[in-house]
């Protein structure tokens, strides 16, 4: 669905952000995009949505170069930015004005999600709190039924019950023909709803694996100080080490510790990636 090839981009001449970045995304998956501050997660989303153009290389969505900004391509991409301005109109008027850009827009679904999130549809969007506005845009994003949905830090600003509602709404949404790419630092908010992990670092995608492959390849364990197990990467924690270990076929699967995995990939990129080559 999405192919990024040899993407090169810089905001300033001598500070390249992307240096030949390659990435492929398939329909039916929800990808979590992780990276350190300044790694370029937001910029990558802006490239995929055609808001920025590559200096070299290309971003292709559904077979068309995004740079051409063809209406048929744009109607299949929705980007939920982290920072946004909404006009001084209510949710219903906003939906009426913007829905026509998306041929399969589902107004019923929009109402359902807004009810679930308890967003007031009659109030001007500018009068809503940041969290309420964000929830409105999440609802709008899902209702577009566009094939590619890009979300930049969607849970930022959401209160505790809303985060849970967000996960439920994502779990309930029909994802079979759609592709979600979610950038986030809030690992714990989202780790259960993603099924692929992508790590962006130093201008390239340095890791991309499905959650299933990660859990059958790596084991996440707490080791005691006298343990004879060899960790690929470990961090000191109370009473021992939190460790990533190469999983052998017979050992049982463990829950993925995304924070530990992320740190491991940043520190020991090659070693971790080698585990996936068989």
């Amino acid at each position: 669905m999405v192919t990024v090839e040899k993407l090169t981009f810089a905001f300033q001449k001598n500070e390249p952000l992307f240096t030949g970045l390659d990435m492929r995304l398939e329909a039916g998956n929800t990808y979590g995009l992780f990276g350190l501050n300044g790694a370029g997660k937001t910029t990558l989303l802006n490239q995929l949505s055609g808001m920025l153009f590559p200096h070299k290389g290309s971003c292709t969505v559904l077979g068309e170069n995004v740079k051409k900004r063809l209406p048929k391509t744009m109607s299949e991409i929705y980007i939920l930015p982290e920072q946004f301005d909404l006009p001084k109109i209510d949710a219903e008027i906003y939906a009426e004005l913007h829905a026509p850009f998306y041929p399969r827009f589902d107004h019923t679904y929009l109402s359902e999600i807004l009810n679930e999130f308890q967003v007031d549809r009659q109030k001007n969007l500018t009068e809503l709190s940041y969290g309420q506005r964000k929830k409105f845009l999440i609802a709008f994003a899902l209702s577009t039924n566009s094939k590619l949905v890009l979300m930049d830090e969607p849970t930022n600003g959401l209160d505790i019950p809303s985060k849970s509602q967000f996960r439920k709404i994502m779990a309930a949404s029909d994802q079979s023909n759609r592709c979600f790419l979610i950038s986030t630092h809030q690992v714990r908010d989202l780790d259960s709803i993603i099924d692929h992990v992508i790590v962006l670092n130093n201008g390239k995608i340095i890791f991309q694996q499905s959650v299933m492959d990660i859990s059958t390849t790596l084991s996440f364990e707490k080791l005691s100080d006298d343990s004879d197990k060899i960790a690929l990467y470990s961090e000191d924690v109370f009473g021992g080490k939190a460790a990533i270990i190469s999983k052998n076929k017979s050992s049982k699967e463990t829950q993925i510790d995304l924070e530990l995995l992320f740190n491991g990939i940043i520190q020991k990129q090659e070693l971790i990636n080698n585990q996936f080559k068989s």
């Binding site: 039916g28 929800t30 439920k168 779990a171 309930a172 994802q175 259960s192 709803i193 959650v211 299933m212």
Partner: peptide, 17 residues
């Protein structure tokens, strides 16, 4: 699968497993 995914707040592919 979908009902379980929503209850557990997980990706349907995870529930499918």
């Amino acid at each position: 699968v979908r009902e379980i995914a929503v209850q557990m707040e997980v990706n349907p592919n995870t529930a499918m497993r």
